[in-house]
Amino acid sequence: MIQVRSLSKSFGKIEAVKDVSFNIEKGEIFGILGPNGAGKSTIVNILNTLLRADSGDVVIDGINTRDDGKKIKLIMGVVPQEISLYEELTAYENLMFWGGLYRIPKAELKENALKTLDFVDLLNRKDDRINTFSGGMKRRINIACSLLHKPRILILDEPTVGVDPQNRNHIFEVIGRLNDGGMTIIYTTHYLEEAERFCDTISIIDMGRIIARGTLKELRKISDAKDLITVKLAGSDCDTVERIKSENPSVVYDIHTNTIKVECDNIVRDIPAIINRIQNSGGVIERIHTRGTSLESIYLKLTGKELRD
């Protein structure tokens, strides 16, 4: 559906995107994960033909974006990061306006607007002004405004920023239903759990480069990230810690929190042996915390920094 080849874009001396390539299949949810300023929005804007790449090509549904930008815009919907709505207009008026930009016949547009409002569960608020809506409701209208021309590809640029958990779930549900309907979705986020929850394929982007790409399983393999067991000890002396460390060479001890961190390939399989070794070395366990391989640990492994950096 989408082929991106050796894409590069600079703004002055700043290289925002460097030699980026990826493919997106029809009906896939493709996640672009990276911190703010990593180059996510630049890629989105190039895909949407709003920006012209310095080099490289984007082919969408067989059309090179350099050849027919208008056609690309007709098959693509973009949900911007900001709530880009006219606050003084009602929800229905906003939908009619944004949909009207795609030259949809009025009767069809009216029908689409009502159906879309129903789809995002806001039909009962159709005549209320946007400035009376909560942040989450605005986000849903923000998505709805990009659906009226029935795009085959939908780009969601950080659609859950500043949204409470309840509304976030509502948005996830909407996105899930859109994907179930066969829509290809490109989802940019800096929330790891969102990418982990949703995306069939994830591209991790850092400083304009894609540093890893694949399913969560593939990324785990690429990064060699492991599960983590954290054990808090109940008052132990130096000798005990030394004994534990000699028994378990991979152990990392944090003197400030009095905790031991052990990496393993499989928590369920490895945890009994680890507990035994600590107790046999004289350690008294106060609490155990486990964490499976997450996108966060993969990101940390790949970039050497946490995503909030």
Binding site: V78, P80, E82, S84, L101
Partner: peptide, 13 residues
């Protein structure tokens, strides 16, 4: 500033 211009530019306008 509120992003509506960019959104307009996402359309075929």
């Amino acid at each position: 500033e509120n992003g509506t211009i960019n959104r307009l530019l996402y359309s075929p306008l």
